[in-house]
Amino acid sequence: MAVSGISGVESMLQQMRALVQAAQQGISDPSELSPTVSSTQGATSFADELRQSVQRISDAQQAAKLQAEKFELGDPNVSLNDVMINTQKANIGFQTAVQVRDRLVSAYNTISQITM
């Protein structure tokens, strides 16, 4: 699971580098760049990677909620330790998503100020 996250980040970084190089060269379409820079074949787009990350966070929150409900109902197969750990994992994932959102908004605002 961590490997796909790393490859997703690498593909996003590659796309961002291609966009930066296109902007520096005054090219409006990054696909016009040389194949070594814009070769993102087989890689997921930034939007897809973001969508998958949000879905994973949502799934973790739902699983933690379900596990907490099972514990509250007295399910002997669910321990308090597991409930607390999974709840914290879901919370950390959510906090990370909020920080990523804030940084994306900040980057968007910076880029929009540069283009004015």
Rank of each mutant, 00 (worst) to 15 (best):
M1L: 08
A2S: 11
A2G: 15
A2D: 13
S4C: 04
S7K: 11
G8W: 00
V9G: 07
V9I: 15
S11E: 01
S11C: 05
L13N: 06
Q14A: 15
Q15R: 15
M16Y: 09
M16L: 15
R17G: 03
Q21L: 15
Q25I: 04
G26D: 05
P30L: 05
L33W: 08
T36W: 12
T36V: 13
T36F: 12
T36D: 15
T36N: 14
S38V: 09
S39L: 05
Q41W: 04
Q41I: 09
G42Y: 03
A43I: 02
S45D: 01
S45P: 00
S45M: 00
D48F: 10
L50T: 14
R51S: 13
Q52G: 11
Q52C: 08
Q52D: 15
S53R: 08
V54M: 13
Q55F: 11
R56W: 03
S58N: 14
Q61A: 11
A63C: 00
A64P: 01
A64Y: 00
A64S: 03
L66M: 12
E69Y: 10
E69G: 08
F71K: 14
E72V: 11
L73T: 09
G74F: 05
D75T: 01
N77Y: 08
V78Q: 07
S79P: 08
L80T: 06
L80S: 13
D82G: 11
M84G: 02
Q88C: 14
A90L: 03
G93C: 05
G93R: 02
F94R: 04
F94S: 06
Q95W: 09
A97G: 05
V98K: 11
V100S: 03
V100I: 15
R101I: 02
R101C: 02
R101F: 02
V105T: 10
V105W: 04
A107E: 03
N109W: 00
I111C: 06
I114K: 08
M116G: 13
M116N: 12
